[in-house]
Nucleic acid binder design. Structure first.
Lengths: 250, 250
DNA sequence: CGCTGCATTGAAATATCTCAATCAATGTGG
DNA sequence: CCACATTGATTGAGATATTTCAATGCAGCG
């Protein structure tokens, strides 16, 4: 069943079509952008929320020296910049890894929607809390692991997220990241990332096939090497609130 | 004017006493805990939200090898574990840096309060978004900066937060962190943290006075060295929602 | 064919960790 | 008051991890 533009918007839940249509009605425009042309820049005024209909994106913070820290990967079916809703200017940049299609929702409209639908606000809050846990895991990755482990841990996280979106085929990491982006995400040089990948390959954990193509040979060993702990998906509240009941598909 | 236990709970805003009393009425117990005895452990069942009345705390994730990544500092007047509200088990541990006093609110009561007060839910959502920006800045710190810069950046962040809570005297970093905790927060060894502090001292940016006592000589230069960007505090929504109006003190 | 954008490699320079020892401050019991 | 234990800060020296710089390889593409 196709349910329109927001069919992949889930926040880890299954929404009813009516709920998704609320977002759909809030869209002001849809844009197509080519790979590596910025979607937003640090410092831009915040006027819209972006929802990714097709493709994948990277968010980053810039270093003075010109290097970057990647702080997030945006996958199709996700909102890209909710955490800037309340900022006057953007705190990070976003660029697409490939040609993408994004839906724009004006901030004020978006807020109005949430205020009209406290249930939806609750979902967004919970999703923001979930993100917080993701980020702390990322901090662990950068702060405590060696290069090779960082890459392994990062791959595990990508797999986990792709699987949630039902986009993991058991092998291919289906996001067109260059080694540069792996490096920027894992706090290292692209040269070093390259060497880490080679080591992972020698350990027979992955296969690196030319450009932007990583295949996983043993997810289990990757998790172990990277000390990756899968996200706990036993939630307290799914059954609690009157909130989610009305939004979730039975 | 004293406004009770939650007088320091702000989320960056100024609440009316009635609002704060809503939280106060939700408290199930108040506990006092000595320094370095865990408040919560990773894996514990989540039954309460903790609000810190007095003292300061550290949250951390454990490494297999026994080292830790500190992922947050909890200051007095803050909720310590909102991001675990929807988890069945705790995703991080918390321990106090000194004797602390915490108020416990049962999860279900807390949720009920929020569902009864959508305005409050909105504030919590916005605050979670704010946290997201903090965490990305922390990622930048770990991923892109050298040791000395990481410490500098971290100090700047502590100062910024203390100032928000009106607890910065212009010089003393008023949180009893050991060099070990600085190290664990900045992704390095305590030995290395020590050397970084020495360098900062030689640059005349800080004065390290014995145990747990750091004085800042030049915040400006610290910011510059650490490439620290102060948090943008121009919000979109403060004026927008019907939400905040009713909660904020005039 | 000659670009261009990545990936890959080597070798030297740095940053950081590890291990092990010492020091200084503090608190405790006799 | 002193002897002693404890905790955290500090230092040194050698081992590793990572960066830097510079060159080469390789595939797609006009």
């Amino acid at each position: 069943m196709h349910r329109g533009l927001f069919s992949r918007c889930s926040f880890g839940r299954e929404f009813r079509p009516e709920t998704l249509r609320i977002f759909e009605n809030a869209i002001s425009s849809i844009e197509t952008i080519e790979g590596h042309y910025n979607l937003t820049q640090i410092g831009d005024n915040v006027r819209h929320v972006h929802y990714l209909i097709e493709g994948s994106t990277v968010r980053y913070l810039d270093d003075i020296c010109g290097s970057r820290q990647v702080t997030g990967i945006g996958l199709c079916g996700e909102f890209l910049d909710l955490d800037n809703v309340n900022c006057s200017t953007r705190s990070y940049g976003i660029y697409p890894l490939e040609r993408v299609q994004v839906a724009l929702i004006p901030i004020d409209v978006f807020i109005q929607v949430l205020q009209d639908h406290p249930d939806l606000m609750e979902v967004l809050w919970l999703s923001a809390l979930q993100d917080a846990i993701y980020w702390q895991r990322w901090l662990f990755r950068l702060g405590r692991l060696r290069g090779e482990q960082r890459i392994a841990h990062f791959l595990c996280e990508l797999i986990e997220r792709l699987r949630l979106l039902e986009r993991f085929d058991g092998e291919r990491v289906n996001v067109p990241l260059r080694q540069l982006e792996y490096a920027e995400a894992c706090g290292m040089t692209s040269v070093h990332a390259n060497r880490c990948f080679r080591n992972l390959q020698e350990r027979e954990l992955v296969i690196v096939e030319g450009c932007r193509n990583v295949r996983v040979r043993s997810e289990k060993d990757l998790c172990e090497l990277g000390q990756f702990k899968p996200m706990d998906r036993n939630f307290n509240l799914v059954t609690l609130g009157r909130g989610l009941g009305s939004l979730q598909a039975s």
